[in-house]
Design a protein around this nucleic acid. Sequence first.
DNA 1: GATCTATGTAGAT
DNA 2: TCTACCTAGATCG
Length: 269
Amino acid sequence: MPEGHVIHRLAAGLTDAFAGRPVAVTSPQGRFPAAALLDGSTLTSVEALGKHLFLTFDPAALVHVHLGLIGRFHLGPSGPVQAAATLRLRLDDGVRVAELRGPQTCELLSEEGRRGLQATLGPDPLRADADPETGWRRVSRSPRPIASLLLDQRVAAGVGNIYRAEVLFRQRLNPAMPGSSVSRRTWLRVWSDLVTLMAEGVRTGRIDTVRPEHAPEATGRAPRQDRHGGEVYVYRRAGLPCLVCGRPVRSERAEGRTLYWCPRCQRLR
DNA sequence: GATCTATGTAGAT
DNA sequence: TCTACCTAGATCG
């Protein structure tokens, strides 16, 4: 489930498990040869920025991980290596292990490389240092639809397809509305909702966006049928009745991603 | 067991 | 706009 909340949870989990401790670093599948250089060094900190994860080691080294669509980083008790052919990176302190499989990126990064990457990312709703005005400048100057802008990591780093669909629904925004038509006040409402929803996602490890008054048990409407790990209004609910108005949720493929919305609750105004 | 699909992104066309 | 990446859970038969 690699939206930003997952990466922040991972950073916290890895920090809890390993920070300040020397770790055995290996790449059982061999596709991260730099593991040998890091082996035995101390993991000093783990930080999340949007969907990117940064592991800092002492002696000085920085590992950059991006899970992509299918990557997994699993934490568990120490034990023998299993399924080595897919195991890109393994951290082991003798008590706990962290195992990375299928990432889009796992690389050593220089400080300069990190700065360059950071420059491509907008504010992260899960970070205290985030400035929503940076995202607003990009939104307000763009003719692109707000649905497209929300997936742009320069607008809001860490937002993925689920949070996009859900925040647009919760704010009753039509996905096609051009960024330049979105008022600053509306953008700040969207931002504030993302901060709330994503922080809750970090806390629980799930994406739950349905307000109590719209929960199926409160309204008697059919519950979500897709098991992706949380209760949502529109994501992957195409054809099912909207939890608020009962109209069928619509979906459309755009820019390679599926967008979900309620044609009634999210009318273009 | 085979097949399908996905919460993402880069690079080719 | 399309495809590759290449894991794993859900679904199909």
